[in-house]
């Protein structure tokens, strides 16, 4: 059982807005925060440009290694870590797909927002199991960060 993922309401709102602004394409970015003993906290996000080609962005997203290097530098500047990734599923459920699983890294939280007809319809967070066979869902806690 993975730790709960705690996220501020304003941060989650920004993730939903990013998903809506990206609609009907997939939007994505990095979750920045802290890894605690009992929970993982997201205190900031770094929205990124979907690097997939025009014809694939409705059902695919890509964050390039160059963006990851930039994200790592931004996290260091803020005194945070990259603790996961967020992306949207336009007009599809906020469950990870088989393609999500094939590409998933362990340890990261994968927060997925379903965007239905252009409106964010809810988010769930997932983490790849050690054997890579499936994701397990993380409990999503809404609340302001207590540590920085």
């Amino acid at each position: 059982m993975s730790k709960p993922l705690k996220i501020g309401p304003e941060v989650l709102k920004r993730i939903h807005e990013h998903g809506e602004q990206s609609y009907p394409e997939e939007g994505a970015g990095l979750l920045l925060g802290h890894e605690g003993n009992d929970l993982r906290e997201v205190v900031a996000i770094l929205p990124l440009t979907n690097a997939r080609e025009d014809t694939a962005r409705h059902n695919r997203y890509l964050i390039t290694p160059q963006d990851m290097i930039a994200g790592e530098n931004e996290a260091i500047r803020l005194g945070l870590d990259i603790v996961g990734v967020f992306h949207s599923h336009p007009d599809h459920p906020n469950r990870p797909s088989e393609f999500d699983r094939e590409w998933a890294l362990p340890w990261y939280s994968y927060l997925i927002t379903s965007v239905s007809a252009g409106k964010a319809a809810g988010s769930r967070s997932w983490r790849l199991k050690d054997d890579r066979q499936e994701f397990s869902e993380e409990t999503l806690l809404l609340g302001e960060a207590e540590s920085n």
Partner: peptide, 13 residues
């Protein structure tokens, strides 16, 4: 080792 991140709902790539 630098990861790239990808995913998306089911369907053709």
């Amino acid at each position: 080792i630098i990861p790239s991140i990808a995913g998306g709902w089911e369907g053709q790539s």
